[in-house]
């Protein structure tokens, strides 16, 4: 047990070592990194303007008020930002497998999954995290919630779980590259786009769409259920408590799919 723990800590260290190197390489292009951050912030500001405009006309969407929807939005963007800033490597897997450069991950005495996760840095993520964080803070300030230490702790757990779910979805779908060989992240992108449904309360969707984002690809646990829990939205609030479990489940599934794919890895013929 102690040995496993030590090993896990060591892996985290290696992960940050690799990531740190990638960051250094990117920071060499200073202007790029500033533009990326600003553009990410702009995307969010326009998204915010969109909901704000809608709520100028109507008081609520199926009982969800403006600031509650903003909370969902901020969770979508923060988790997206965490995915880009810390785990952008999942988006490189398709190309690595396609051209056989994945070989090198298998020649090092470190879990290939850790190497994949640390494989790249997307600085637009920082812009997303900062603006998303600001939106979340404003939202929390505008909704009446009884803040207890327990609820505060739960907020942190929910954010971490939501980010885990998103990253796990990225990783699990990235593993599709072991079966479908294209240089583009086709399946990951496709599934990522499903995340659009996470921006609004899922009660507005038909049953089929709800089933998809709750059960099949649980994007609803990235934004909807955590928000429902935090703001005590009756029927849904309790399900929000399941978010950490869903995160563990997603991570387990992603790693399993990745491992199965790994055994199929064929490299390339030259």
């Amino acid at each position: 047990m102690a040995a496993r723990l030590r090993r896990a800590r060591w892996l985290v260290y290696i992960y940050f070592r690799c990531l740190g190197q990638q960051m250094k390489a990117i920071l060499a292009y200073e202007a790029d990194f500033v533009i990326l951050m600003i553009s990410a912030a702009l995307v969010q500001i326009t998204g915010f303007l969109f909901i704000w405009t809608i709520f100028q006309r109507i008081p609520d969407i199926n009982g969800w008020t403006f600031w509650q929807v903003v909370m969902m939005y901020s969770l979508v963007f923060i988790t997206e930002g965490v995915g880009s800033l810390f785990f952008e490597g999942t988006w490189r897997v398709s190309r690595l497998i396609y051209n056989g450069n994945f070989d090198q991950y298998l020649l090092r005495p470190v879990s290939p999954i850790v190497q994949v996760l640390a494989g790249a840095v997307g600085f637009n993520g920082l812009g997303n995290i900062i603006t998303g964080g600001m939106l979340m803070a404003i939202s929390l300030g505008n909704v009446q919630v009884q803040w207890t230490p327990g609820r505060l702790l739960m907020l942190v757990i929910l954010i971490v779980s939501a980010a885990t779910i998103r990253v796990a979805i990225n990783l699990g779908t990235a593993a599709s590259a072991f079966w479908i060989k294209t240089p583009w992240s086709l399946v990951p992108f496709f599934v990522h786009q499903l995340g659009e449904f996470a921006k609004y309360p899922i009660t507005i969707y038909s049953l089929a769409v709800q089933a998809m984002v709750v059960v099949a690809i649980p994007f609803a646990f990235v934004s909807f259920f955590p928000t429902a829990y935090l703001f005590n939205m009756e029927a849904w609030s309790a399900i929000g408590l399941l978010t950490p479990l869903v995160a563990v489940y997603c991570l387990f599934m992603a790693v399993t799919i990745f491992r199965i794919g790994l055994r199929r890895y064929e490299s390339t013929g030259h």
Partner: peptide
């Protein structure tokens, strides 16, 4: 003037 076309493109798209 810049190599950061990804950011430029995203910013244009947002606006």
């Amino acid at each position: 003037w810049t190599t950061g076309m990804e950011g430029v493109s995203n910013a244009r798209m947002a606006v």
